[in-house]
Design a protein around this nucleic acid. Structure first.
Lengths: 345, 345
DNA sequence: ATTAGCACTCGCTAAGGGAGAGTGCTAACA
DNA sequence: TGTTAGCACTCTCCCTTAGCGAGTGCTAAT
C-alpha cells in the first residue's frame, strides 16, 4: 500500500495530538482541529490503512487510534517539525551555567537537574570516560595516628582516595619517598593501561613494612577499580509521575526500579557513538525493561574528544521535537563549558 | 481514668497486630488471636476507654481501631518487647562490612543499602560532620595546558577538588611554592574556623598573576563551601512501595519528594544528640511534611567523637522493635569499623 | 464486673444501566 | 472511482443500587 502525502499528514496530526493529550485520537478530532479539508469518514478509511500498515494501534474496538512505535519512528524521521530552543530556554540554561562551578561532579549534577527541569523527563548522565584519562599525581597524605590517605588525581579532574594503614615507625619522610616513587611509576599513564606489576615489583624490593605495603596495594587497587567505574547521575527521577500513563503504582515502581539498575543505564548511554543526537523508541530498545520508554541521548566532549553521554528517559509518547533540540543544545553547551574549564583561553 | 494492666495488654495486642496487618483491629481478633481470657464485649469496652484516652483511633464508626501516635509512643516506651538482632541478621551485616572498603564514601553508601535492605524502610545517613575536621594537606596539581586542580585533603578522609585556571608564564615550580604557602597557612586548621583573610592578604602581596589568584580564591571558597555542606545519603528510596498505605500514587509521590529535600533530612538527622537511638513518631516531628512518618535515628562516631547520624524513615506503623535493634547495632558496627579504619591497632 | 445478644453503621464489591465517543459498513453522490 | 453522510454497533466510563461482612455500642442477663 502506498504511503501518500495525505496519510503522512494524518499520521502527523495523530502523533502531535496524542503527545499532548495522552488520549486515543479519533477521526472527528483530526477533521476538526487539524482541518485538512476532508471528512471524518475519509480519515477513518485512511486510519484503517495506517493501522494495517503498522503505524497505528487501537487500544480497543471503539476507541481512537494511538501511534505504534513504528509510527513514532516515522514521525521522528520524516514528519516532526524541528523547533530550535526558544530564546528564553536557551537563556535559562546559559544563566545556570554562568554560576561557574569549578567542580566537575557539580557541573554534571547540575546539568542533570537542568535537563530534567526543562524537559520534564528523567535525566541520566554518564560521567567522564575514565579509561582515556591520565594519572597526574599520586600522594600519601598522613591524616591521623596510624593512617594516611592515598590520593590519586587525574587530568579529568577526578580524584579518588582510600585509607592506608601505617604501622609504627613509618614517618612522613618515608611516605614522601613512597609518594615520589609512585609518581615516577604511574604519572601520565593511561588509567586503562595501568597494571599492578610495577607496584608488586616495588613491593618485593621492600623487606621491611610488608604490612604497610599490603595495605597500600589494596588501597591502590580499589581506587583504580572505582576510577574505572563510570558514575551515572540522575535528575528528575520523580518526573514520571507527571504523566497520566504512569499514575498506575505498578508502572511507577517499575520505572523507579529501572533507574536503580546502573549497569543497564550505563549500557544504554554508552551506546551513543558520539555522532549527534540519538533517539531510541520503545521496542527498539535492546533491554526488555525499556520497551515502554523512549530514550534520547547526546554526547559531550572536551577539546573534541568525546567524554560522556547525556540522556533523557520518558514515555514513548514523548515530545521528540523539544527533547531532541534540548539534548542537542545541552550536549554542545556542556562541552563548551567543560572545554573552557580545562583549556581556558 | 486508670490505665490498668489489662488496658496495656490490649493496646499492645492492637499495635502488634496493626503493625503486621495494616488493617484496623477489631475486638474479636484480639479475643481470638491474643487470648487474654476475656470476651470481645469486654475488650470493646476497654477499647472505647483507650480511644477516649487518646491511645486509639477509629477510621470510621464501624471499623476496628488503629493506634494513634500517642498509642505508638506508649508502645515504644513501655510495651514493646525488645528483641536483639538474630544471629543471622548480625552475621549478614558483619559479612558485608568484611569487604573492607577503604573509601569513606563507599562505606557510608553501603551502610545505607544494608539498613534499607534489612529494615525494608528508607535509610538516610548524614555524612561526617565536617566542621570538626582538620585540613591536612593542600596542593595544586597541574592537569592540563592551562589548568590545575586544587586538592584539599582532610583528616576525615574527605577530599574536595576544584579547577583553577593558570595563565601563561606560571610554571610547576610556582604552583609548588603556592601550594607550600597554602599548607603553611591552613594545615591543621579546623575547617569551620577557616576564613579567607590570610589568603586575601597573600593575594595583596602578589602583584603579578592577579587573574590566577582570583581563580584560586574562587576555587578555594567553593571547595570550603562544599566541604561545609554535609552529604545526605539515601538507600531504599522505593521501599515505601512495599507498604499498602502508600499504594496511593499521591502519597508515594509525596514521600519521594520529601526525600529530595536534603535540608529537611539534614535537619531531621542533625537533631539526634548522640546519646543512643532516638524515635520520633508522626506528629512528634517538627516538620509538617513528616507528620505521617516515623523516624528512628542513631549516631556513629570515630574514636568516641560523634561524626554523623543514621536514620530510617517509614510509616508510623513501623516495626519499632526491629527498627530500634537494627539502628542500635548498625550505629555501633559502623563506628567500630570507621574507628578501626582510622586508628588501626 | 462481665458477657451474650442484637440492632445499627459503614465501607466494599458486584451488577445493571445509561451516556458518550468512536468505529466500520453501506449507500448515495460528484 | 474516490468521497461523504448516515447509521447500527461496540466498548469504556461512570453512576446508582443492593447486598454482604465486619465491627461497634447498647441493653439486659449472669
Amino acid at each position: 500500500m502506498e504511503l501518500g502525502a495525505r496519510k503522512l499528514q494524518i499520521l502527523q496530526a495523530i502523533v502531535d495530538d496524542y503527545i499532548i493529550s495522552a488520549e486515543p485520537v479519533g477521526s472527528r478530532t483530526i477533521a476538526k482541529k487539524y482541518g485538512i479539508g476532508i471528512s471524518s469518514a475519509t480519515i477513518r478509511n485512511e486510519m484503517a490503512d495506517l493501522e494495517e500498515m503498522g503505524y497505528l494501534e487501537q487500544p480497543h474496538t471503539s476507541a481512537g487510534r494511538i501511534p505504534s512505535d513504528k509510527g513514532y519512528r516515522l514521525y521522528v524521521d520524516r514528519l516532526m517539525k524541528t523547533r530550535g530552543l526558544s530564546i528564553s530556554e536557551a537563556n535559562y540554561i546559559k544563566d545556570l551555567y554562568d554560576k561557574k562551578t569549578r567542580q566537575i561532579e557539580q557541573v554534571i549534577f547540575q546539568t542533570s537537574k537542568i535537563l530534567s527541569d526543562i524537559t520534564d523527563y528523567t535525566a541520566v548522565i554518564l560521567g567522564p570516560q575514565l579509561n582515556q584519562v591520565l594519572v597526574k599525581h599520586i600522594q600519601l597524605v598522613p591524616i591521623g595516628n596510624h593512617c594516611a590517605l592515598l590520593v590519586i588525581v587525574t587530568n579529568a579532574g577526578i580524584i579518588k582516595d582510600a585509607i592506608v594503614d601505617i604501622p609504627e615507625g613509618v614517618n612522613g619522610d618515608y611516605l614522601h619517598r613512597i609518594s615520589n616513587m609512585l609518581n615516577d611509576l604511574f604519572r601520565d599513564q593511561n588509567l586503562g593501561g595501568i597494571t599492578l606489576e610495577p607496584m608488586l615489583k616495588m613491593q618485593e624490593g621492600m623487606i621491611q613494612n610488608r604490612e604497610f605495603f599490603n595495605s597500600l596495594v589494596d588501597a591502590f587497587t580499589e581506587s583504580i577499580g572505582v576510577l574505572d567505574t563510570r558514575e551515572v547521575y540522575l535528575g528528575g527521577t520523580t518526573n514520571i509521575f507527571k504523566f497520566p500513563e504512569y499514575h498506575d503504582i505498578i508502572k511507577a515502581k517499575e520505572f523507579l526500579d529501572l533507574l536503580e539498575q546502573k549497569d543497564l543505564l550505563y549500557d544504554l548511554l554508552a551506546r551513543n557513538d558520539g555522532k549527534g543526537v540519538s533517539v531510541t523508541i520503545g521496542e527498539e530498545n535492546r533491554h526488555q525493561e525499556l520497551r515502554d520508554y523512549s530514550v534520547v541521548t547526546a554526547t559531550y566532549s572536551v577539546g573534541g574528544r568525546t567524554l560522556g553521554t547525556l540522556g533523557i528517559i520518558g514515555p514513548t509518547r514523548m515530545e521528540y521535537s523539544k527533547a531532541i533540540s534540548v539534548m542537542d543544545f545541552m550536549g554542545k553547551t556542556l562541552s563548551s563549558y567543560l572545554t573552557q574549564l580545562f583549556y581556558k583561553e
